[in-house]
Simulated assay, not measured.
Amino acid sequence: MDSNHDDIVAATRNWLEKAVIGLNLCPFAKSVYVKEQVRIVVSDASTPEQLLEHLVTELQLLADSDPEEIDTTLLVHPLVLQRFMDFNEFLGVVDAVVSEMQLEGILQVAEFHPKFQFDGTTINDVSNNTNRSPYPTLHLLREASIARAVEAFPDPAAIYERNIETMEQLGRAGWDALQVGPHKSGT
């Protein structure tokens, strides 16, 4: 891995540790992270087509892997889909690929982006930070792991509400103080 990839992985780990796990935005993340079952892959794709090829490879690898070795994958792609609207449109292609690979019910893909914006919010709404990552990232998850986690956390809808409350209490200054991104293109 070259030094640029090392920096991207380090920024992603920083975000995971300080925001996702540190703020408990995902109560299921800590256990797989501390067991080193999270695969972080940096894609050098510069076009959506190249990213799609990389996504197919990573979906198959995750599907074929022992969950004790790799439970989830973060496919970080800093060179493509920098605009959130482009990224958001690409998610339809992602869903189609999961279906074509006959992985529905086995794997799903969640999304994180430096410019993530929930429908009905303004760009500066602090609640958007729950899904903002240092770089555009596709999160490949096992459905079985999600099901087990949901059993342990009986009201998953409350997670979203609690996350919004956490972001509102933290505020813009608190989020910025975490220094978890987003990073500028080319850095």
Rank of each mutant, 00 (worst) to 15 (best):
M85Q: 15
S99Y: 05
L103E: 00
L107G: 03
T72Y: 12
L61Y: 03
V97Y: 00
E100W: 01
E111V: 11
T73G: 05
M101T: 04
L103Q: 01
G105M: 02
A63I: 01
K115L: 14
K115Y: 11
P67C: 12
Q82G: 14
L62R: 01
L103R: 00
L107N: 02
L75T: 04
P114W: 10
A110L: 13
V93S: 09
V94I: 03
P67V: 08
Q108N: 04
S65E: 14
D64S: 02
A96I: 06
L91D: 12
L103K: 01
V76D: 13
D64A: 06
T72S: 12
I106T: 05
I70Q: 14
L91C: 13
L61H: 07
V94D: 02
S65G: 04
T73H: 11
D86W: 12
V98H: 03
L74M: 15
S99T: 04
T73C: 08
A96W: 03
Q82K: 15
E68H: 06
E69Q: 14
N88R: 11
D66I: 07
S99W: 01
L61E: 07
G92N: 14
N88I: 04
L103A: 01
L62F: 05
P114C: 11
V109C: 03
G92M: 04
D64R: 03
P78E: 14
E111A: 15
T73Q: 07
D95F: 01
L81G: 00
E68T: 10
E68R: 08
I70T: 15
T72P: 11
V94F: 00
P78K: 11
T73E: 03
H77N: 08
Q60I: 03
Q102A: 06
M101Y: 06
L75V: 05
V93G: 06
D95W: 01
E68M: 09
E111G: 15
L61M: 09
V94W: 00
V80A: 09
G105N: 00
F112S: 10
F90E: 10
F87D: 09
V80K: 07
P67L: 07
I106C: 02
P78D: 14
S65D: 09
Q60E: 05
E68A: 10
F87K: 05
F84E: 12
L81V: 09
M85Y: 13
L74I: 13
Q108F: 03
N88W: 13
D66R: 07
A110M: 07
L103V: 01
L91K: 13
T72Q: 09
E111F: 12
G92Q: 15
P78Y: 13
E100C: 02
A96P: 02
S99M: 04
P67Y: 13
N88P: 03
M101L: 05
R83P: 05
V97S: 00
A96Y: 06
L62W: 01
Q102M: 06
Q108T: 05
L61G: 12
D95G: 06
F112T: 07
F90T: 10
R83T: 10
A110D: 06
A63F: 10
P114M: 08
Q117V: 12
N88A: 10
V76Y: 10
V98C: 00
Q82R: 15
M101A: 04
G105Y: 02
V94S: 02
V80C: 13
L74P: 11
F116S: 02
E69H: 11
S65A: 14
T73V: 12
D64Q: 09
D86Q: 14
D71S: 15
F84V: 04
V109D: 02
T73D: 08
F87T: 08
P67H: 12
